[in-house]
Design a protein around this nucleic acid. Structure first.
Length: 437
RNA sequence: CGGAGCGUGGCGCAGCCUGGUAGCGCGCUACACUGGGGGUGUAGAGGUCGUGGGUUCGAGUCCCGCCGCUCCGACCA
């Protein structure tokens, strides 16, 4: 992509309304534009990141056998009246009325809807287990939206729902998701720690929040010092095998949010305990038959007797993750994208666009990178070098290649790593060689 | 929803107290110089001062209502 005709309105100054780092950088890097409180338009650069995150989530859901569907944003209130949540949910639920005077709502979550789909079509234990998910915009009318996309009112969320015949099988489904979540966050370059959690208005018996560590995080978290020594995701995992030992290994180390952490009864010594801040980027629940009872979703068991299915639901805050990743990965100059979610792989800076040699080398590099499947953002604007480099740092692509007449005299370009700041002078072939493996 | 603020060109702000020609920086356009970390100069474009009413000869400025946005708290994926 050529920057000269790419819509990426970067800002030099901080917008006054943005207080938190990720929000500031998202606005300054031209990723989003606020439409109203807690509601954002996604501009090209932001949308690219959102889509990358979404795709990783999708792949890991598919990997544990969940099937993708897509449910609507607007739901009829009827099902919510049936489950009782129409009255329980309170003012966070955005209620609408259509032209016929029917009660509708903009979905904050989809338990009722998915249960309705299930009960319409599935009648036998033979159809179980089943996990369905979708990635859809949700709306919760927060009293006080803040922190940009981290706590918006409208947000993109992956929500999955599992259906099982009994508790034992439901826990198997829960464990699959537990592992899928660890893999999902790891792929995004995040350290996400599962912590025991309250299940809140969703209801249920067992629940874990996935928290990523970030100094600017919204909640205080506590975890055992050697938590990150647990590193069992590398080996091959048979997702259909017994996952309980693996899950248990992750839960063997202490980890709790401030709601659950009780300093009086903490099993750890002060030395072992790390107190820091974190952001919730996922939440999984097992809630048994709460919705299948309310909405009468049952299947015939082995004995032919009807059983209400055991369900779980599993959320990942996709749009929130964009902000959360920035909170976890930035410096004073801008964003530092983990490679897996970076909007482009490489930023190519042509220092002097009216220099024929510079442009020729840039075109060559651009073409070759394209050939090997790497995405390049090529800064071919007639701007001062300083502002181009500052923009590149702000946008935070993992690699920068700086092509200027000074280096080309001796046949080299500069390859710079955004994260470490280290740079080296390399020939064209050497640069390409770096990326071919 | 309690408390506190803010709405003036695309962005950040001054002007309001004490009413009288709407200003500054950045950005934008053109030209020139410049050219490896947000450069310099010259000349420009761009604003119903959030909105409705009131006071006044005259309102960005004073008064009242409304709307929007932000921050702290309570709440929350």
């Amino acid at each position: 992509m050529r920057l000269s005709n790419y819509f990426i309105p970067t800002l030099k100054d901080n917008p006054k309304d943005a207080q938190i780092t990720s929000h500031r950088f998202m606005l300054r890097a031209g990723m989003i534009q606020q439409a109203s409180a807690g509601i954002y338009s996604w501009l090209p650069l932001g949308l690219r990141v959102l889509k990358k995150i979404e795709q990783i989530v999708r792949e890991e859901q598919n990997a544990v056998g969940a099937q993708e569907i897509l449910m609507p944003t607007i739901q009829s209130a009827d099902l919510w009246k049936e489950s009782g949540r129409y009255d329980d949910y309170g003012k966070e639920l955005l209620r609408l009325t259509d032209r016929h005077g029917r009660d509708m709502l903009y979905g904050p979550t989809n338990e009722e809807q998915i249960t309705e789909i299930f009960r319409t079509h599935l009648k036998s234990y033979r159809s179980l287990p089943l996990s369905l998910y979708h990635i859809q915009w949700k709306f919760r009318d927060e009293v006080r939206p803040r922190f940009g996309v981290m706590r918006g009112r409208e947000f993109l969320m992956k929500d999955a729902y599992s259906f099982d015949l009994n508790y034992e099988n439901a826990i198997k489904s829960y464990n699959k998701m537990f592992i899928a979540y660890l893999k999902t966050y790891a792929r995004m370059g995040l350290k996400a720690i599962p912590m025991a959690a309250d299940s809140g208005p969703i209801g249920g018996d067992m629940s874990h929040e996935f928290i990523i560590l970030a100094e600017t995080g919204e909640s205080e978290v506590y975890y055992q010092k050697n938590w990150f020594d647990i590193n069992t995701l590398d080996k091959d995992i048979d997702i259909n095998g017994d996952l309980q030992p693996l899950v248990d290994s992750y839960l063997s180390c202490y980890a709790a949010t401030d709601e659950k952490h009780d300093p009086e009864n903490c099993p750890l010594t002060e030395e072992e305990l790390i107190a820091t801040r974190g952001i919730e980027v996922g939440h999984i629940f097992y809630f048994g038959a709460k919705y299948s009872d309310a909405l009468n979703a049952s299947v015939a068991g082995y004995d032919g007797v009807e059983n209400h299915v055991h369900m779980g639901s599993y959320g990942v805050g996709v749009s929130r993750l964009v902000g959360a990743i920035i909170e976890a990965s930035h410096d004073e100059k801008g964003i530092v994208w983990p490679e897996a979610v970076a909007p482009f792989d490489i930023g190519l800076v042509n220092v002097k666009i009216d220099n024929a040699k510079c442009s020729e080398i840039c075109h060559e590099l651009y073409r070759r990178f394209h050939q090997i499947g790497l995405e390049v953002l090529y800064d071919d604007r007639d701007e001062r070098t300083g502002s181009k480099l500052a923009d590149m740092d702000l946008i935070g692509l993992p690699w920068q290649i700086i092509v200027g007449p000074r280096g080309l005299k001796s046949g080299v370009v500069e390859l710079k790593n955004r994260k470490t700041g280290s740079s080296e002078e390399l020939t064209i072939d050497e640069v390409l060689g770096k990326f071919i493996n």
